[in-house]
């Protein structure tokens, strides 16, 4: 392994303070907590962590908004993407009303769409893309990491080389360039897509690209762990008594890696949500009429001075959702780490 391949995020895991009295590395051994799995210990620690609970509450809030978006919008008495041109001043295209009981966040300048509806539905793509991409990239990362680490040799070389290749590409540029290209691939020749179809394709393209670049970190982590685990006695023993390779990988080795996997997945979710919002802001993400916080921010940046209600709900939502998810991820990392004491 060469050191130069380390990325910033990986080195961030160094932050944990080493405690010299603690026996190295493994979470299993402490006497006080005898007979409990590392996951159980982590879960107990997490339940006592105030920041983790607040963060979890915030995430739940946004998940509820996303799930019950239609209900909330109905409660407000509105419909998504209904254009209230009567509420727009003909003089300067700004709305003539602010926030009121009919339009909780006011209406969008120029189009007159209800901003609360746009905001509530906008929670959906962020969360769906974040969680789906994190799940899929975790699965890919686990599989490739296990294969590279356990089989070694040529397989390891190929996977390592692929990682080097992907790391050398400027991620944002490639993603910006690839999104329209793939979209075109799925467009039947000679047809133009409706806005809904285009947005639908973009949705899957975004997930696919995030997974394509997102598995690398976890794969490298798992590969390294498997390298040391495969020499341990219990794996050797399993091999000697003729257990199948697949069984060794998934039943003997994988359970030892639950901690790093959960940590990596929980850190991936906010990262992907950030990516979705950033890409939508730059114009390569979701397109109209699908609501997306990132795009609302982008639309709002010309009208924010006179109509801050346009800019701030999505800005605060993205910031607090990503912040809460990141904090939750850090709390989970701490909970799994035997070296942190509270």
């Amino acid at each position: 392994m060469s050191l130069g391949q380390g990325t910033s995020s990986e080195l961030a895991s160094l932050t944990v303070d080493g405690d010299p009295t603690e026996p190295d590395g493994s979470a299993e051994g402490t006497d006080r907590q005898h007979g409990r799995s590392p996951s159980q210990i982590a879960w107990d620690r997490l339940k006592g962590d105030k920041i983790a609970i607040i963060s979890f509450g915030t995430v739940v809030f946004f998940v509820l908004v996303a799930v019950f978006a239609p209900l909330l919008v109905k409660l407000e008495g509105e419909v998504l993407n209904q254009y209230h041109s009567d509420l727009i001043s003909a003089l300067n295209t700004y709305p003539i009303i602010g926030a009121n009981t009919e339009h909780w966040f006011g209406v969008e300048p120029r189009t007159g769409r209800d901003l609360f509806a746009v905001w509530a539905y906008g929670a959906r793509p962020s969360l769906i893309i974040g969680f789906t991409a994190a799940t899929l990239s975790t699965i890919v990362g686990i599989t490739l990491g296990l294969l590279a680490g356990y089989l070694g040799g040529k397989v390891d070389k190929v996977i390592g080389w692929t990682i080097d290749l992907l790391l050398s590409l400027p991620l944002l540029v490639v993603v910006l360039a690839v999104v329209p290209v793939i979209q075109q691939r799925f467009t039947p020749v000679g047809e133009t897509l409706t806005a809904e179809q285009k947005s639908g394709i973009r949705f899957y393209v975004l997930i696919a690209i995030l997974v394509f670049f997102g598995w690398i970190g976890l794969a490298r982590l798992i590969r390294g762990e498997v390298f040391s685990l495969r020499e341990r006695e219990f794996v050797q023993a399993a091999k000697v008594i003729g257990v199948k390779t697949r069984h060794i990988l998934f039943k003997e080795i994988l359970p030892n890696l639950v901690g790093p996997i959960i940590v990596s997945a929980s850190i991936a979710v906010p990262a992907y949500i950030t990516y979705e919002a950033t890409l939508s802001y730059l114009g390569a993400g979701l397109v109209e009429p699908t609501p997306s916080w990132g795009r609302t921010v982008s639309n709002a940046q010309n009208a924010y001075a006179r109509y801050p209600l346009f800019l701030w709900p999505p800005v605060l939502s993205i910031a607090s959702l990503v912040l809460a998810l990141t904090m939750l991820g850090e709390a989970i990392r701490d909970a799994f780490d035997p070296n942190t004491r509270r």
Binding site: V297, Q301, A305, V315, I318, A319, T326, M327
Partner: peptide
């Protein structure tokens, strides 16, 4: 310091940059 860098670093970069640009260089 640890808490602040954690919170500040976790907010999506483009939001920080955009708010800074909009409110401190334009408005």
């Amino acid at each position: 310091v640890v808490g602040f860098t954690q919170v500040f670093g976790a907010i999506p970069y483009y939001i920080v940059a955009l708010l800074f640009a909009l409110y401190l260089t334009v408005l």
